[in-house]
């Protein structure tokens, strides 16, 4: 399993005077689910884009696993980013350079697990928003990523639908525990999902505090989540703008 090390000394957007990210240092352990919590516009998406290789204009180093291998990165974007002219199945299959029988059966399993098997030949416009998110999650898991990036994937879903997709994600991750870096500004969501919370400052963004969640995953009901949130409130004054 992979260990991810992210070290960004400085990231300045083209034409901007002030840096978006400074002295950002974060290590992810293999199979760890880490949630980045920060205010909107602090630079979380910029960070994920840099890690995914979509933006290489920064000073620093991002190391995913062994340097010699070409790391596989799965990305669940804020929007589902599905090709409207391809079916659900084709959208997932496209991320493979060459498909084989094992991959096909793996996609079958994932579609089954995410309750989308009957929609495999549907086009994205025929799906609800929640279904589209599930397809983009399947696509990211299908490649067995060394690192899975998730950028507020439930941001525009209504609460019941977001809860449903979140629960499916939790079950899926339990079966396939990839290393995940999940961005959110919803602390309750972060507590429900993460092994570790990483709080971020506003711009220029850097790590403000890291907190491991001591509660067992099975016991994370809404009451436990609310209690833990209140503890954070009481114990860490510097985090209050983020809570």
């Amino acid at each position: 399993m992979t260990i991810v090390h992210i070290q960004i000394h400085e990231k300045i957007h083209h034409g901007a005077k002030n840096p978006t990210i400074v002295n950002f240092d974060l290590t992810l352990n293999a199979g760890e689910f880490v949630c980045l919590v920060g205010q909107s516009g602090c630079g979380k998406t910029t960070l994920l884009n840099s890690i995914a290789g979509l933006d290489s204009n920064y000073l620093g180093e991002i190391r995913i696993g062994n340097k010699t291998q070409n790391p596989q990165i799965g990305f669940v974007f804020q929007q589902p980013c599905l090709l409207p002219w391809r079916t659900v199945r084709e959208n997932i299959e496209l991320v493979f350079a060459n498909q084989n029988r094992i991959q096909k059966s793996q996609i079958d399993n994932l579609l089954d697990f995410m309750k989308l098997k009957v929609y495999e030949n549907a086009y994205p416009k025929q799906l609800s928003e929640g279904m589209k998110r599930r397809v983009s999650i399947i696509r990211a898991f299908a490649i067995n990523p060394d690192l899975l990036l998730m950028d507020e994937p439930f941001v525009s879903l209504d609460a019941p639908m977001a809860r449903e997709v979140r629960e499916l994600l939790q079950q899926l991750w339990k079966n396939r525990p990839h290393t995940v870096l999940f961005v959110t500004h919803d602390l309750r969501e972060a507590i429900a999902l993460a092994d570790r919370l990483v709080f971020l400052t506003s711009r220029p963004m850097r790590v403000l505090k890291e907190i491991h969640i001591p509660i067992d995953r099975h016991q994370r009901n809404s009451e436990e989540i609310e209690n833990f949130r209140n503890q954070l409130f009481q114990n860490y004054a510097e985090l209050q703008p983020l809570l």
Binding site: N49, A52, G53, L54, I73, F75, F77, Q79, C81, L83, W85, R86, L94, V95, A97, R139, I143
Partner: peptide, 24 residues
């Protein structure tokens, strides 16, 4: 742009990006 980012992130080749993302 978000579809182009998706293609880049998932390592689509130039030909694959042209055929499946740009031309449609």
């Amino acid at each position: 742009k978000s579809l182009l980012n998706m293609a880049k992130c998932y390592g689509f080749t130039r030909m694959k990006t042209l055929r499946h993302v740009i031309l449609p």
